[in-house]
Amino acid sequence: MAEVTFNDIIKPENLAYTKSKLMTNNVMHYCPGCGHGTAHQVLAEVLEEEDLQSRTVGITPVGCSVLMYNYIDVDFQEAAHGRAPALATAVKRLMPDKFVFTYQGDGDLAAIGTAETIHTCNRGENILMLFINNGIYGMTGGQMAPTTLDGMKSSTSPYGRNIATMGSPIKMADIVALLPGTCYVTRQSVNTAGGVRKLKRALKKAVQYQNEKRGTCFIEVVSNCPSGWKMTPVESNKWMEENMFPFYPLGDIKVPSEK
């Protein structure tokens, strides 16, 4: 048999993976190795595969992902810092047949927007809240976040987070899981192919539950911030596995009962 050449393999019929058609051609502004890009792409894949483009309204936060609307080809609203769940509440109430998601970082969702987060989950709004937790304020230059780990250094905790004076890192997924309004709460990651594929399955469940009007779906993605953590992307992923995952363990926290 003749040797299979590179050109023989790279034919459309042999395609195994390419980025979603819902990803625009804009080059993402994220730092090299940042998990935001990966999370965007999984989300875009799910929106494409579930044929949701024409009925999706996304809400972007203030933080690194403020410009997310440049990257995924669906309708977007840009919220004030922390307020995405309030916008999403109104969008879903006024247009119940749309697929509505928020995308927020830890400063946005777990500090300034805590009230909106808790109450939106408590009302059980039929939306998906996607929460990227990298334990730091990335966009403003690496300040301490509500999710910054005990002892972790940041530009506003230069000697490490001191729990006695700065409080403990907050586990938002565990908190919202206590509220009756949430139907599905899970914690995922995007640093490995396996992690990305699990996140994709979680997102598909969230689409299903939103279609079934089961309540709020809350998906936390424990992610990295190579620039804010002052590490290479590969180092940051390793550090995340060793330090973030023990405190923010991956897996489902709450799943809906079968119908």
Partner: peptide, 8 residues
């Protein structure tokens, strides 16, 4: 590799 690539 493609699945974890942040920039697609």
């Amino acid at each position: 590799c493609a699945v974890v690539c942040p920039d697609g």
